[in-house]
């Protein structure tokens, strides 16, 4: 194994071990997410006549699952940075010639575990409300492709927040608001074709809307707004661009850290 492989091994081992040691927090997080989501889902279902529940349920369910990828990246990568910086881990990792970026990306593992676990439970709630058909998927490959692209984007976004928190204070509320708004304006909750035209033009420039269209195509065969090929192309380019920017941003921020020192600012 090369040095880098040993490092990746160490990072994965660390995050999984911490996940186990903080098991009560982990369970609490999952429960909290599910309960909040159920409150809003039940509220939103009250707007729909009961006979149409089974039609809208898969869209809402997958919207929630996709939103969770975004939310956990923001909080488990971006939000964790505050702890990471304030405990002096930036320096301790730099001293071992390890950039803090892969350690923070490793937190995606924790986020992913929470997303998957809570998504399964939300799916159960939906099954109870609308029947088991809600879980059916037309083409699992497109769903997987959409989720991988979405994940790349959300992890990159989490890293932007992490990098920014080395320099400025990011109000936690602002992150929550951005998350909330992304649910609707980011095209996660609703197919682009169903959005009112003004909202749709905003959604089209938010990156997440495009992999979300691919996921919905895979789930129920809903034709993506820009066409399947175009959406795949756009999503891939945007995901790669976002990841490259995250890499460059971290390089820049580490140079900044060496010049001005580590300042624990992070989330406010």
């Amino acid at each position: 194994m090369t040095k880098n492989a040993t490092r990746i091994h160490a990072i994965v081992w660390l995050h999984l071990l911490r996940l186990w040691r903080y098991k009560f927090s982990f369970l609490n997080n999952i429960l909290t997410i599910i309960l909040w989501l159920t409150i809003f889902v039940l509220g939103a279902l009250m707007f729909i006549p009961k006979e149409q529940w089974s039609l809208m349920a898969p869209i809402a369910l997958w919207g929630i699952i996709m939103w969770q990828f975004l939310s956990t990246s923001v909080w488990y990568i971006g939000g964790w940075t505050w702890f990471f910086v304030s405990q002096g881990f930036v320096e301790e990792h730099l001293l071992t010639n390890t950039s803090p970026a892969p350690v923070l990306v490793g937190r995606a593992l924790v986020g992913l575990t929470i997303t998957v676990s809570s998504s399964l439970l939300v799916a159960l709630v939906f099954t109870g409300l609308t029947g088991p058909e809600v879980l059916l998927v037309d083409n699992i490959l497109y769903v997987a492709l959409g989720l991988v692209l979405l994940c790349t984007m959300t992890i990159s976004y989490g890293l932007y927040l992490a990098a920014l928190s080395f320099r400025i204070g990011i109000p936690g509320t602002l992150l929550d608001i951005a998350n909330f708004v992304s649910f609707i304006l980011g095209g996660l909750a609703v197919p682009l074709s169903k959005l009112p035209p003004q909202l749709r033009s905003i959604a089209l420039i938010i990156p997440y809307a495009h992999p979300a269209e691919i996921v919905r195509y895979g789930v129920r065969g809903l034709e993506p707004y820009l066409g399947l090929e175009t959406e795949i192309l756009v999503s891939t380019i945007v995901a790669l661009a976002m990841a490259t920017i995250a890499y460059l941003l971290f390089k820049y921020i580490l140079r900044h850290v060496r010049r001005y020192g580590v300042r624990a600012i992070g989330r406010m």
Binding site: M1, K3, T6, R7, A10, W13, T96
Partner: peptide
């Protein structure tokens, strides 16, 4: 120690 050792490439 194991974690920080691994980050230094010790194994």
């Amino acid at each position: 120690l194991k974690y920080f050792g691994m980050l230094r490439g010790l194994k």
